[in-house]
Design a protein around this nucleic acid. Sequence first.
DNA 1: TTGAAAGCGCTACCAT
DNA 2: ATGGTAGCGCTTTCAA
Lengths: 364, 364
Amino acid sequence: MAMKALSKATIYQVAQLAGVSIATVSRALRDSDLVTRETRERVQAAAQELQFTPSRPARSLAEGRHAANGIVFPDLVGPYYAEVVLGYEAAAAALGSSVLILATNGRRDPAAAVRELAGRVDGLTVMGRTIGDDVVAGIASTGLPVVLLARDPVEGVDTVRAGNSNTARALAEHLVGHGHRTITFLGDPDGSPDVAGRYAGVRAGSKGAHLTLVRGKGLDLESGRRAAKSLLKDKPDAVVCANDEVALGVLLAAQEAGLRVPEDLAVTGWDDLLAARFAGLTTVRQPMRELGATAARWLNKRINESATATRRADKRINEGPPVARRPDERDESHEENRTAARRRILATEVVIRGSCGAHEEVHP
Amino acid sequence: MAMKALSKATIYQVAQLAGVSIATVSRALRDSDLVTRETRERVQAAAQELQFTPSRPARSLAEGRHAANGIVFPDLVGPYYAEVVLGYEAAAAALGSSVLILATNGRRDPAAAVRELAGRVDGLTVMGRTIGDDVVAGIASTGLPVVLLARDPVEGVDTVRAGNSNTARALAEHLVGHGHRTITFLGDPDGSPDVAGRYAGVRAGSKGAHLTLVRGKGLDLESGRRAAKSLLKDKPDAVVCANDEVALGVLLAAQEAGLRVPEDLAVTGWDDLLAARFAGLTTVRQPMRELGATAARWLNKRINESATATRRADKRINEGPPVARRPDERDESHEENRTAARRRILATEVVIRGSCGAHEEVHP
DNA sequence: TTGAAAGCGCTACCAT
DNA sequence: ATGGTAGCGCTTTCAA
């Protein structure tokens, strides 16, 4: 009878138990077509018996790949990032890749943490508000496939994002159409590319109204509430917030100030959190999971591309005669045969609820 | 001038560039005290120049550890898991460990996925509603440190969870105190240990009232709304829901049915989502991040313990004379010197808002 | 179809 | 203080 599994069985033990060489074990456990069915079964039985699981580090070292990729985000507070990460994980898993996560907020040295992560994966997805473009560029120049998610493009790197300006513009126009003439945008365009895009859109859609920018720093509820306290003294018609959490904070502040929404004040957010629905908040819906899934799929493509390129380069090195290369034939194998950086903007959609003015029918 | 980084620099190249042996490079880049300051600087300069980052697989293979741990959860939908994972990641990072995630929902073979994950980490945290106890036991028997999070204990494995029954009881008593006499519990106790605990508590706290159990399957908003549609025909006084999302669904259904909350119907949830606040939902708050952080810290302890034990065992094998062991001295080095399984239940707290009946003061 | 053996890149022990 | 070198466990030619 088999002993309880101890320590960790290696391929050598399996080989011994099955009476074959480790090479055969390796093949039997994967290639399969290069081994007799009988042998394979014997090996599999032995592996089973010893509860054998190949060592990941050993495999990775030999194969030269990790079979894992990573995603970097600021934090997981609020449903936005969580949904994105979830979509990412699901897509990556479907492609046979494990997922490493890294939250940069509250980290002493985010850049170092990301570099360390880069050494553990075959590819990396980096979201906005985490690390600088220089760090991203540095990592990408290593040949490590990188996909940018919800942040401004970096030369030569794929980027996936959700639409900001056009939808923001539509939102602002809607507000103006409601008769709002004094609009305040609450959020810091310099703090995040997304916010910048939203602000730009709101500006474009606010023709005919007076638009004020209030650079509220945080993107959480408390920041919104705090900013609103002073902001509301100016009696704006409408406050367009950088995201839902901030908008919910404004709602709270308005309530505390005795202001009615939307009669005295219109408020809008961005993200369509579950809470927005119950707060009757007009907002914008983003395809969060799809953002994550797209990033994961693109990354996978890039990883495959670069693997192919590398393999080809290796062959060339080993087989080719040692002639001097032509000067324009620089060794940038990971760049060759690489299509131009991909860009995609996923569509977003305004969700009208009560907070932006009276409507016949509002979204439930 | 340094060339753009290509492929991947190895320790050999750094050694060559610095004019030392790879052993010295290895030391200079970590041990530091065993090398001259001058040498160290030279090596670091070379490493810098080549953009050298040690290969993780090679390191792991040589060291026999991954410097990473994993967490398994059903999904990231709703703030609950996201918060837990965030707390986990933060604590793990502080302990110098990378984090691998695995969402089991929508996975064809969760057990296999978890086993594969187990091969990539030094320890594993497993949450409820993911894989069976047998799989957990199987992995734990490997000697891999495991911590259970928000699920029923398994023999010999550490468990961290949030209080369910006591708080649920207090909640039920509060409802009864309000005069509610016909209470319905909406949720499936067999579907999750947490729900089971909550139901048990509600039962204990419903003395003097008539309690009905409706086994609503899902834990999402739509499931709650759907279940409520038929459930409300029985005109219950109060509906205690397994979690907030279900409760919010009930709120929606009640509204559609023209019922006023709390006048016609009291509703309570569990989790204190952001949305609960805006829906005025009475609920229970759990220390979600703390749950995750605790799991990460415990796991770290276990990993250190088992590393120590293994090291000791190795020494014994290499140095000790080949005498026969005493029969009671079985080779279970990963179990020896291991304290009994830890258990902890983190406190939860009832958050009273409007949905459970009129109050003078409600939680904002 | 199978086995022997050369790495993969790094750590750590043993010399010097 | 530094170098030489034996592994760590697996994959993958190259031979047989």
